[in-house]
Amino acid sequence: MADILEISEVSKTYDLDGENPVQALDRVTLDVAEGEFVSVIGPSGCGKSTLFNIVGGLIAQYEGSVRIDGRAVDGAHRDVGVVFQEESTFPWRTTLDNVAFPLEVQGMGKPERDERARKFVSLVGLEGFENHYPAQLSGGMKQRTAVARTLAYEPRIMLLDEPFGALDEQTRMLLGDKMLEIWAALNQTMLLITHNITEAVQLSDRVVVMSFRPGKIKEVISIDLPRPRSSEVISTPKFGEYVGRLWTLLREEASRGMVEAEAELAAR
């Protein structure tokens, strides 16, 4: 399949006080094919979220280029939909109105947008909760609402920044299954940012391992596990091999990150 997303030599340095520049990303290059599920994994401080914000058009100042279908991305892009790690549903809107939000700002009429929103509410398994407010939903249901809202936008690339990071492991696995169902049903290109090795292997075609600061691509591992896939795959020996291999790659980076974080704390 042709590449839909091309991230080329992307670097980003933060210099908040003008004295202590911190390089978050160092010449990151990555191509994602249409319909592919790619995860980016790395220790805290590896620049995962910076990469997410750059691809999502939320950070404008960076070096290198991000292209979608060969066209440079400058700001939020119509073809990119974003699901955030933090709670991002609108508390004053019902599930249906949350999901219909991107359609509303596009100027779609209420009957049509409600009908389309219902389709995506159903796709994420929230039928019967259309008129519930986020405060009346569990954490997993809120994140599914956020996923449905982004799907309703019908982006060609879906960016997910640890969307299930705040959930317990069992819910996370079940929602992983739901994401795989959605991915298979819509042939949606997905780029997942995560620090969870199991989640990355369970969901992805490829896993991109990043180094600790400055974030560079350390290795890209293709996950050759059969599809359709579900969380049951975690009991297979091959899954364990992938997890082991990824942990070996990450361990060194995570240790380095921990040592540097402790040194920074000690220096204060």
């Binding site: 990119v80 974003v82 609108f90 700002v105």
Partner: peptide, 29 residues
């Protein structure tokens, strides 16, 4: 107003006007 909610608006390409009426104001109510 939560930065995440503002980023949600930006990711959907909402205008400044819509950002105020549909996100900032309800959030600040």
């Amino acid at each position: 107003v939560s930065q995440t909610l503002l980023n949600v608006g930006r990711s959907f390409n909402v205008s400044e006007r819509e950002m105020f009426w549909k996100i900032q104001l309800p959030s600040a109510v």
